[in-house]
Design a protein around this nucleic acid. Structure first.
Length: 435
RNA sequence: GGAGAGGUGGCUGAGUGGUUUAAGGCACACGCCUGGAAAGCGUGCGUACCCUAACAGGUAUCGAGGGUUCGAAUCCCUCCCUCUCCGCCA
């Protein structure tokens, strides 16, 4: 959420920077400012009336104490009418606040000045690459072929259980998934300074609003209810990312400056309805309704936000480097960034079987956009209450990492080579071909 | 799900309709005192919004939302959360 006072004083800049997202959001600014002016005028007026009522009520109290009941009764008459006017105006003020909040919650974050202008992913500059695409003296297979041949995934039965887009990992596949999760958590907690948390996998709508999922992406979430009790529908949602619970851990709190920075990492499954994306889904594991992910979250002082963003990207890159996977780092342009983000780096890993790069990580600094939505603050050393920067990044998404890993490290005999750092977790140096 | 007890500022803790303008204490900040410190004494000290060039001023806020009243931390209703016990349950 943007700061209404900042918008009030920087209306032109707000419009310009919203316009740079090429989403037409800047058109909402004028009506927002009108509501703001109306709200403040009403508030000033009704607060004067309340001050008056308060003063007279106090007089009535004093008169009652002195047993002057007639005089008190006369004053009650005048304040009764005052109370009716106040109630009416309170309703108007609340209406204006509700309308203003609805617009504020619908506006995306402003892009940072270092974000390049653009309208689609075609305009995202490549920042750097690491390694080279794997070369083969045979034709590399798709992960679908590999997973079926090695019985890593039972696609048909996964679909039987839950529909298309749900995966049943089996045997070495299930074991590899588990090994990757633990490898990632150990890396980030032992080497990168994150505190591991294991959050709920369902969250309240307030948490979804806090990170900016709601109100814009209601359709993307799975809403749950208790049994057949429809009245409980909408009280909890399956998390689309661990960012939803973990970024909200300190919602509504006032942290101390010495508490910062806070680094969390968490494993969770991620549930995405992908409404409207029917038919876009590719065969296999690349676009699914449920996948595992290890997420990194940072809560930092505003002056450290961008330094910490770079560090977080490096943390995610380390995963791919240790696994020997070629990747590139992309800076998202203004038109391609997520709703809550001010600046986002994507990391795309090379999948030789696909002949394409797959997004396995997205690291964003949301600045104070989310912390304002969730009323998360910290008291600075000079006593001011400030909104910290909130950063989130995948470290990394698992299904696509699984794809890149088996496609990159497939051998001519059909087995999968396991990179050294992962071996203690898998308990093997390769996934063998079936006998 | 049932019964009971609770929810007051950073913490603690009073307050059952009207100088409560939320007492007192702790913590914190500043000052006095001291060779220095502690103790003691004094002053200040929540949050959000409105207004103002600034100082000042105003409104709201006692888990949340409604209601009664001239006036609600206090009375009524609904909901949320915590604790104790019971039931069910991995």
């Amino acid at each position: 959420m943007l700061d209404i006072r900042w918008i009030r004083e920087h209306a032109d800049e707000a419009k310009q920077r919203l316009a740079s997202r090429h989403g037409g959001e800047e058109e909402k600014v004028d009506s927002l400012l009108e509501l703001d002016a109306k709200r403040r005028a009403l508030l000033t007026e009704v607060e004067q009336l309340k001050a008056e009522r308060k003063a007279v009520s106090k007089e009535i109290g004093a008169l009652m104490a002195k047993q002057c009941h007639e005089e008190a009764a006369a004053r009650k008459e005048t304040t009764r009418e005052l109370g009716d006017r106040i109630a009416a105006m309170d309703r108007e003020v609340n209406q204006a606040i509700a309308e203003q909040d609805a617009i504020l919650l619908s506006l995306p974050n402003l892009p940072h000045s270092s974000v390049p202008d653009g309208t689609s992913e075609a305009d995202n500059p490549e920042i750097r690459t690491w390694g080279e695409p794997a070369s083969f003296d045979f034709t590399p297979q798709s992960h679908v072929t590999l997973a079926e041949r090695l019985s890593l995934i039972d696609f048909a039965r996964g679909a039987k259980l839950s529909g298309s887009g749900f995966l049943l990992y089996t045997g070495w596949g299930a074991r590899l998934e588990r090994a990757l999760i633990q490898f990632l958590l150990d890396l980030h907690t032992r080497e990168h300074g994150y505190v591991e948390v294991s959050p709920p996998f369902v969250v309240s709508p307030e948490c979804m609003t806090g990170v900016g999922q709601f109100p814009k992406f209601y359709d993307q979430a799975y809403a749950v209810q208790e049994g057949q009790d429809g009245s409980t529908l909408g009280k909890l949602y399956l998390i689309p990312t661990a960012e939803a619970p973990v970024a909200n851990i300190h919602r509504e709190e006032l942290l101390k400056e010495e508490d910062l920075p806070v680094f969390y990492c968490a494993y969770s499954p991620c549930f995405r309805a992908e409404a409207g994306a029917a038919g876009v889904g590719t065969r296999g594991m690349i676009r699914v309704h449920q996948f595992d992910k290890v997420e990194m979250i940072k809560i930092v002082r505003p002056d450290e936000g961008y330094r910490e963003l770079d560090a977080m990207v490096a943390n995610a890159e380390k995963v791919l480097q240790l696994l020997g996977l070629h990747y590139r780092v992309i800076l998202l342009c203004t038109g391609d960034m997520g709703f809550a983000s001010a600046k986002t780096f994507d990391i795309e890993v090379w999948a030789p079987g696909q002949g394409s790069y797959l997004e396995v990580s997205s690291c964003s600094n949301c600045e104070d956009f989310q912390s304002r939505r969730m009323n998360l603050r910290f008291k600075s050393s000079d006593g001011k209450n400030l909104h910290p920067h909130l950063l989130n990044g995948s470290g990394t998404a698992l299904a696509r990492l699984f794809v890149a890993l088996i496609e990159t490290h497939q051998q001519s005999d059909g087995s999968i080579f396991i990179p050294e750092p992962l071996r203690p977790y898998l308990g093997a140096d390769s996934i063998p071909t079936p006998a």
